[in-house]
Amino acid sequence: MEQASPDNHTTWLFKGCESALAATALLNLLLFPLEFLPFSFFEKYGQYFEYVLIGSIGLALLGSLIYSWLWHRREQTNTLYSDLQHAWLQAIIRYWLALSISSYGFAKILKTQFQTPDFFLDMPLSSVNGMGLTWYYFGYSYPLAVIIGLFQIGGSILLLYRRTTLLGVMILLPVMVNIVLINLFYKISIGAFCNSVIYSLSLVFLLLLHWERLKTIFWDLVDHLPHIPLGSSWVKHSLRLLLIAMAFVSLKVLMLIHPNEQILKGTWKVEKLIRNGRVQPTTAWLTDNKAWSRVYFAGYEGCAFSPNPYRFDSGESLLGGYEFDSLQNKLQVNFYSHDTLRATLNNRTTETMRLQGVLGHDTLDMHLVRLYR
C-alpha cells in the first residue's frame, strides 16, 4: 500500500479507504457517550437507534467519499499539503482503536466481560448457545482473561505513538482476527461481530502502510546460515512436503486401524431394559444406578452407562472402554469398576439396535435408539 510523502501522491482509493475509516472512527467516538445513558432511555428510544445508526453510517461514508475526491483533486493541482491530512486521519484511526480495544481489555480485568449468568450454569450443555459457551469458557479462568486484556491494553498503548504503531498492530491483529472468528462461528451478537471486523480492517490498513518494510523483513530477508547440501532442490521440497503429509497420514492410519471406534459413537436412549427376564420400570433409575437410561459411546474416549435421562453424573454412572467387532456384532465393555459386559448387538442399524449380554450375574436385554444432539 502507498504511504504518504511529500514527493509521492497517493491514489484516490487510498484516500477513500483512509477517509472512510477515519469517518467511522469519528462516528464511534461521537456515539461513545451514549453508553452512559440510563437503561430507561434505551427502553424508550432504542427502537429508533437502528435507523439513526444506519443513517449516520451512510452519511459518514458519503462524506468520506466526497472529501477524498475533493482532496485528490486539490492534490493534483498541488494546492494541498497531503502529508498533514494523512497524519490527522491516521491519528484519528489510531486513537480510536486504542480507546475501543483497550476498553475491552479493561472489561476483562474489571470482570464486566465473560461473566456467565447463574441460570446458564443449570442448563444442559447441549442447550447452551455459542455465546453462552464462549462466555463460560473464557470466564472460567480469570488469569487467562487478564492476560488477553493486558495484550489488548498494551497493544492499544503502543498505537498511541507513531514509533510503536507497527508493533502495536502486530500484537493486536492476531487477537482481533481470533475474536472475529469466534464472533462469527459461535454466533456472538451482530454488533460485536461488526465491531470486531471494523477494528480488524483498521489494523490491516495500518499494517499495510508498512508493506515494503514488511516484505523486506518477512520475504526478502534470507537467513545467513550456510546452505545445507542435499543434492537437487526437489529433495528439499519433497522433505518439506513429507513432514506435513506425515502429520495427516499418521492420524489417518490410526483411524483405519480402529475403524469400529466410530460405528457406535454417539448417545443412545434405552427404550426398554430387561434385567434377568424382568422389564425395568421407566422410574427405576431414581433408586437403582444400574437402571440405565442413556448409553454413551465416545470412540477413543470410551463409554458410559448412565441412569439419569436428564443429566450425566460420572459418580452414578458406569465408565469404561470398549471393543466392538462389527463383523460378528460382538461388544465387550471393560468397566473401570473391573466388571465386564460381553454382549451381542442384534438388529443393528444406524438408528436402533438391541444389546443382549451378561454383566456379572445379570443377563441384560436393552433396546437402544440413537439420539441426535
Rank of each mutant, 00 (worst) to 15 (best):
E18I: 00
F205I: 03
L355Q: 04
G130V: 01
E2C: 12
K187M: 02
M170N: 07
S250L: 12
E323N: 13
E75H: 01
L70I: 06
G315C: 08
T283G: 02
M123C: 09
N276F: 06
Y322K: 00
P38S: 03
L70Y: 10
L31M: 13
N276D: 15
G231A: 11
W88A: 10
L21E: 01
P117W: 07
L65D: 01
I101E: 02
L242R: 06
I101F: 11
I228S: 04
K44D: 07
V204L: 15
I147V: 15
P124C: 13
V52E: 00
H237Y: 09
V197K: 02
L371E: 05
F36K: 05
G154M: 12
A107P: 01
S100H: 11
A25C: 15
L150G: 03
G266K: 05
L29Y: 05
S238N: 07
G168V: 08
I244S: 08
E261L: 03
P229L: 07
L371Q: 06
A284E: 15
W268C: 08
I157N: 00
F297Y: 09
D362T: 13
V180I: 11
E351V: 10
W285N: 03
E271V: 15
I182K: 01
H86L: 06
L172P: 05
S200R: 01
I190T: 08
L160V: 14
L368H: 02
T134Q: 04
A247R: 00
W234E: 13
V279H: 03
P143E: 11
L355R: 03
F49R: 00
G155A: 10
G58Y: 08
W219K: 04
N329W: 00
V358I: 13
V369I: 02
S202Q: 09
S82Q: 10
L159Q: 06
H86I: 01
Y142F: 15
T77Y: 09
V333N: 02
A25M: 09
T164M: 07
L133D: 02
L206N: 05
G168T: 05
V369Q: 11
L201P: 04
G168D: 09
D339G: 05
V146H: 08
D325H: 05
Y95T: 08
M255N: 11
C17M: 13
P307L: 10
G55V: 08
L150W: 08
L184G: 01
A4S: 14
G357R: 04
N260A: 15
C303I: 05
D288E: 15
S156P: 12
Y142G: 00
E212N: 14
I101C: 11
L173I: 13
Y310R: 09
L160M: 14
N260D: 15
R240C: 04
G132L: 01
A304E: 07
P226G: 03
S102C: 12
A25Y: 07
A25I: 01
I66V: 14
W96K: 00
F324E: 03
V146I: 15
L121N: 12
F305D: 07
A4D: 08
R73Y: 11
V204E: 01
V333H: 01
